[in-house]
Design a protein around this nucleic acid. Sequence first.
RNA 1: GUGAGAUUAGCUCAGCUGGUUAGAGCACUGGUUUGUGGUGCCGGGGGUCGCGGGUUCGAAUCCCGUAUCUCACCCCA
Length: 403
Amino acid sequence: MISSLRGMNDILSEDYERFTYFISVATKIAQRYGFHFIETPLLEETALFKRSVGESSDIVGKEMYQFIDKGDNDVCLRPEGTAGVVRAFVQKKLDRAGGVHRFFYHGAMFRYERPQKGRLRQFHQFGVESFGEASAYEDASMIMMASDILNELGIGYRLQLNSLGCSECMPPYKENLVDFVTKHKDEICEDCTRRIATNPIRVLDCKAEKCQDIYKEAPKLLNSLCSSCESDFATLKEILKQNEIDFEIDTNLVRGLDYYSKTAFEFVSDNIGSQSAIAGGGRYDRLVEFLDGRPTPAVGFAMGIERLMELIVMPEVKKEGYYIGAMDDEAQDLVVKIAQKKRKSDIVILEYKTKNLKNHLKAADKANVKYCAVIGSDEIKNGTIWVKNLEDKTENAILRDLF
RNA sequence: GUGAGAUUAGCUCAGCUGGUUAGAGCACUGGUUUGUGGUGCCGGGGGUCGCGGGUUCGAAUCCCGUAUCUCACCCCA
């Protein structure tokens, strides 16, 4: 037997119901916020992710499905969605068109990681990206949209918020931090030692207790923001408060992708194990420029669909459609014709075998339909079809022409 | 990539320290005196016990390898 690759799952039956339910809810809400669907390729030039996500990130450094194609191009399966959308935005020259452009997408992403609960090699994200709006109000809208989606799905969460500063205030902060950490380099863990060189900001959310004790004294990003970043962050917090969105400030919240600046946020759940981030995003004002576009402010977020699926509270499925069967061999062909006609407008489960009424009703129950319709010898004689509403138990003989 | 645990019917799982044809519940399927269901009763099908080696008279059970899943690290959505 050939089975699916490690960390790559089929989605069917009940999972598929949850999956499509999520997509429909998220789509509806994104559209309410004025976002439009965008589809981008699963395969992109490797350079796209190196320049956007960043070579220092784990995603690019060790998790990409990368290969040389038959045309000798260095390509990879997308490990995340933002880079492709930004590439499309620049390629379509929307950066030159001016104005605000808002997109949402959903689809498969690929990361070569060790699978565990909530972490697959092929997984699905729903994401939104907004271009051309620098206001912190847009950041707030993003967060409120994510919150709307989670609320509608019945998912509980905590919202963590931070500001990563901009190109003006981040570099000097980073220097201060590196100085601080270097002073303590004999006391910190191996991972953190490595991080000093690769991605110093990441030491802040190191899990090692020993390190955390030391970093309590470390310079705080939020205390080092420039005046513009600081006022934007204050605005954001104020809008969220006014709209009753609860949040916690987490000065150690650092996003793993290099392109983020200013607002960074993460929605986490306590009910799905250690892979607890269910949505994450932030502002990335420099990314369009990195990818050869005109400087364009942008902000977005992505949600991990598989992680969310476990938490979704599904609405009750109501009985729908018809079950149609014959109680007499003579009615068998007739029943097929009737089903075909009915299928122009309704769900029809057609039984090919002749059965007695009791067994037809049993089968109709199993099919979870609203009506059970059968034809036996009486109905053949009278030109009718017997229809029972399985919910309110009413039954009628209806003329076949009117059914 | 590191460490630990698991893998027996479609699903959830029993199967004690190796001993004759491997079990249960649910699901599926057939029947249940004459046309009324979802919750009765009786029956039926379905497993080379993840895969490959080894130890043994004998392995689902012990040993080794391997794959996959789960948990944690790491990383992130």
